[in-house]
Design a protein around this nucleic acid. Structure first.
Length: 576
RNA sequence: CGGGGUGUAGCGCAACUGGUAGCGCGCGUGGUUUGGGACCAUGAGGUUGCAGGUUCAAGUCCUGUCACUCCGACCA
């Protein structure tokens, strides 16, 4: 490719809407242009990167015998009614009518169409297990797209689906995807992506992992342990048992706490630590709108995802209601009489004693509460947010860390949620119909592009891994248009390298060296070849390989070999 | 969906108490120049987001509306 013909202008200034490194570089470097909120055109450079990522994914999917298919982006209401998701999914799914007034959707994921496909194509147990995948455009009307390619509304996604007759078979396939995903991220140049346990959300199913790239730009909170390999999304992370205060047993005592509704007020007033207090958080169930009261140690916060999963209903913070019979501000587990409330007691209170708690009487608290003695039949569950330095649930050490992470992929063991809902069966050996067990597996291709930049780029240079770089080699001749010798050398090398099958970009523009180098940093080819009058006198060429601090001067006669070897070495580092 | 911000040339921005739109970069042409974003000359490029209104006169004031963006909620 001749750079003079490359579509995609580079900017000298940092785009002001970009706060993320990847976002700014993609615009500055002429990779993407915005069309609307969460909508981007991929210019040639970005498209080349995307294509290389697609090919890595395709290669690995084929390797584990997943078969490529392509399902339509548009779905019918009828199909989505089969699973019930036409109604259960919110505004993220675009609904519209076709010319004959039939209700249609833009599929944001493809469980429904893939089950429909399997209905007709996989009726006998003999086909099972099998996997299909597609690399396709998705549209999700995100409430808030952001960060360039980090979160868009329209994006390319690889989604795979596996079908099984036994749970063991699903687990086996799940493991092959688990490993394939690690290979994909390694090949894409981000081996540091980790798999963490995650919430399955509306997808249903039991086991799920997210593949996370830990970096500041990430939107998810990821829990990792510094002492062992425990990791999980904040949404579902748990922690080990806390140390219980072993003070002497106190008697329960009613104390006056006039107008003290907040934890801080009471803490100050009674001169105690937050950890000695019980916090009562009141929510409203979104299914029957009855209250949910969560008791938790006051130095902890409620993890609403864990709570939602536990009580199997969405929750919203409850506004004070006269009809509730709840003494807001003075709620506690002793002598509580809330009407119809779901009571949830966090395990941070288990075996605790000498606690201060609301007395369910206006302006009064109890001190000396002993959970075992005073709260009969309590069931302790885990609904607390994990905090920094928390106790690891696996190794028991106080070594929990919280980081931000970008979710670049996920894998779910779905079970029979969709096959059951849609009434899909296969016949087993005894001619009995059964619902197949499913898994599903996604990778966000565009998001991966941005993630690689978050991991590898500086504010000036993108530094692509060779496996996904838009070009392998960037030839930057100085004084190309006037110096005949430079011109000839550059063109010769360009031809030879191209003939060797390398992706080569030749900067044939009449620009100052500084401008060329600045643009070369934005193209980010892992091998840069500079041809200059200065070095040509001694028949030397300058080669800069990504990852090396300095450029090397190579004899002209050896430069091709040098480049080929450098490329092989870089590929090997990516596991290719 | 809640809160903040911004809409003027491809990009970054300016234009005071209203007076009829300008600068830098980039782009075209001619020339000089060539190791970290060169220089001279010359030129093209705008219904100031949109719609109303006030006024002799609106980028500027008023009303409405749309879009984009940041923070939060949400996120198959």
């Amino acid at each position: 490719m001749l750079q003079s013909k490359l579509i995609g202008e580079t900017y000298k200034e940092w785009p002001n809407e970009a706060t993320l490194k990847s976002h700014g570089l993609l615009i500055k470097g002429g990779y993407i242009r915005q069309v609307g909120a969460g909508l981007y055109t991929l210019l040639p450079l970005a498209k080349k990167v995307e294509e290389k990522i697609r090919n890595i994914i395709r290669e690995e999917m084929n390797l584990i015998d997943a078969q490529e298919i392509l399902m339509p982006l548009v779905g019918t209401k009828k199909l989505w009614d089969m699973s019930g998701r036409y109604d259960s999914i919110g505004n993220e799914m675009v609904r519209f009518k076709d010319r004959s007034k039939a209700d249609m959707v833009l599929s944001m994921t493809h469980e429904e169409p893939v089950v429909l496909m399997a209905m007709s194509e996989a009726q006998s147990y003999q086909k099972y297990p099998f996997s299909v995948y597609q690399i396709q455009t998705k549209f999700r009307d995100e409430a808030r797209s952001r960060g360039g390619l980090i979160r868009t509304r329209e994006f390319t996604m690889k989604d795979a689906y596996s079908f099984h007759t036994t749970k063991e078979s699903l687990e086996e396939t799940y493991k092959t995807y688990f490993d394939a995903y690690h290979r994909i991220f390694k090949k894409a140049g981000v081996p540091e992506v980790i798999a963490v346990k995650s919430d399955s959300g509306m997808m249903g199913g039991d086991v799920a992992h997210e593949y996370m790239l830990l970096c500041d730009a990430g939107e998810d909170k990821i829990i990792t342990c510094e002492s062992c390999d425990y990791s999980a999304n904040m949404e579902i992370a748990t922690y080990g048992n806390l140390k219980v205060e072993t003070e002497k047993i106190e008697d329960l005592k009613l104390v006056e706490t006039p107008s003290m509704k907040t934890i801080d007020d009471v803490c100050k007033f009674l001169n105690t630590e937050k950890s000695r207090m019980i916090k009562a958080v009141v929510y409203t169930r979104q299914d029957d709108y009855k209250p949910v009261v969560v008791y938790i140690r006051a130095d902890r916060d409620v993890n609403e995802t864990k709570l939602t999963n536990l009580i199997k209903a969405d929750v919203e913070p409850r506004k004070e209601k006269d009809t509730d019979n709840i003494v807001y501000g003075f709620v506690g587990p002793y002598n509580f009489e809330g009407n119809d409330a779901t009571i949830v007691i966090d395990k941070s209170l288990e075996n605790e004693a000498s606690l201060i708690t609301g007395a369910n009487i206006l302006d009064k608290h109890y001190t000396g509460l002993n959970m075992k003695r005073d709260v009969k039949n309590a069931v302790y569950v885990d609904v607390a947010k994990v905090v920094e330095k928390d106790i690891c649930p696996v190794c028991g050490k106080s070594s929990i860390r919280i980081s931000n992470g970008i979710e670049v992929g996920n894998i779910f063991q779905l079970g029979t949620k969709y096959t059951k809902a849609m009434g899909m069966t296969y016949l087993d050996e005894s001619s009995t119909p059964n619902n197949p067990i499913m898994g599903c597996y996604g990778i966000g291709v565009g998001r991966l592009i941005a993630s690689v930049l978050e991991a590898k780029a500086t504010n000036k240079a993108v530094n692509w891994p060779i496996t996904i770089a838009p070009f392998d080699v960037h030839i930057c001749p100085i004084d190309y248009s006037k110096n005949g010798e430079i011109y000839t050398k550059a063109n010769d090398l360009y031809k030879v390298l191209k003939a060797k099958g390398l992706d080569v970009l030749l900067d044939d523009r009449n620009k100052q060296p500084g401008a060329k180098f600045a643009d070369a940093d934005l193209v980010g080819a892992p091998i840069r070849l500079v041809i200059s009058p200065r070095n040509l006198e001694s028949e030397l060429l300058e080669v800069k390989v990504t990852g090396n601090d300095k450029a090397e001067l190579i004899k002209e006669s050896e430069v091709i070999d040098f480049i080929e070897n450098a490329r092989k070495k870089l590929l090997k580092e990516c596991g290719c």
